[in-house]
Design a protein around this nucleic acid. Structure first.
Lengths: 160, 160
DNA sequence: GATAGTTGTAATATATCATATTACAACTAA
DNA sequence: TTAGTTGTAATATGATATATTACAACTATC
């Protein structure tokens, strides 16, 4: 099992909006092309990000705007916004009908639940510790490295 | 999405084996009754626990035995044994075709992967910190509380 | 050694869920 | 007015979790 890709899609969307906002307002079709999924998926995720108060959009008008500073948006916010894990159910699916007539069956839930929640929370805390400012920063860094490598390559070629 | 119930079923199985081992060897049918699932599911999970070196079984002969001490079996061992999360894929499903022609698309994976792994690992470390000795101990504790409550109830009744 | 009970596993069915896709109304910008 | 865009419902498709049936291999016991 895996946490659905809407989470990484959400991160991709916000990163792209942040990276391209000075050049262009990116629409759902462009984003879909960058992400490699259907535009309706992008619009769905953007809707969820809007409901979570992370972006703002206008029907008919192209592109979305961020409503928070990048360093105020954490990975956890996006994970939560797109409903990566059902709040009621939790990360771990417990078998649903342990037998109340068995001493183990009627107690296993009680005994395990807290520890499973702790594990889930540890994961979520980690997600809280990264902001989209970190992600965008690292993306820019990666782009810089790309162009440095390209320059180095060109220089190497010209030396031959 | 959720981590499948085979994980909690695995914990239930080992707890039951530990709790009942002095009284009875529990077979897959009994366990299925306690857990509330089909006996074949139980046998499948036991097979995976056996492959992980946690239990020992014998074809035709009833019941499974633990091959490790309870304090040497962690929740993580069971989580791993039943393949709760695919080792290749990881906990987070990344969208599969980010566009290499887009500056964000070709870098998002690199930028996110480490942080997602860190989050997954934080969850897994928490699972490592609980042993089956803890679980069995807590289960016995819960059973004690049950009988204390029962006694209290009986005493209350006799006073009326 | 014959019988009843058990495990191991393959094969299949079913239900649920993630993702893709089509379609279209509501809206904006030019 | 026209072309482009968003928001969302409806539906399709494929993957996966769990249930179930079936049976061969094996053990324990009478």
């Amino acid at each position: 099992m895996q946490i659905g890709s809407k989470f990484t899609i959400g991160v991709h969307i916000i990163t792209a909006i942040a990276c391209f906002r000075d050049m262009d307002r990116v629409n759902s079709e462009f984003l879909a092309g960058s992400i490699g999924v259907n535009p309706v998926i992008v619009r769905t995720v953007i809707s969820q990000l809007r409901e979570a108060g992370i972006v703002q959009t206008q029907r008919g008008s192209s592109g979305a705007e961020l409503t928070k500073r990048l360093d105020e948006i954490t990975l956890y916010d996006i994970y939560k916004a797109v409903g990566s894990v059902d709040a009621e159910e939790g990360l771990f699916h417990f078998h649903e009908q342990p037998n109340p007539d068995c001493p183990v069956g009627r107690n296993i839930h009680k005994v395990l639940d807290q520890r499973l929640m702790d594990a889930q929370r540890a994961m979520e805390e980690k997600l809280r510790s990264t902001t989209l400012a970190d992600i965008v920063e690292d993306t820019r860094q990666a782009l810089d490295n790309e162009s440095n490598e390209e320059t180095a390559l060109l220089q190497a070629e010209s030396r031959m």
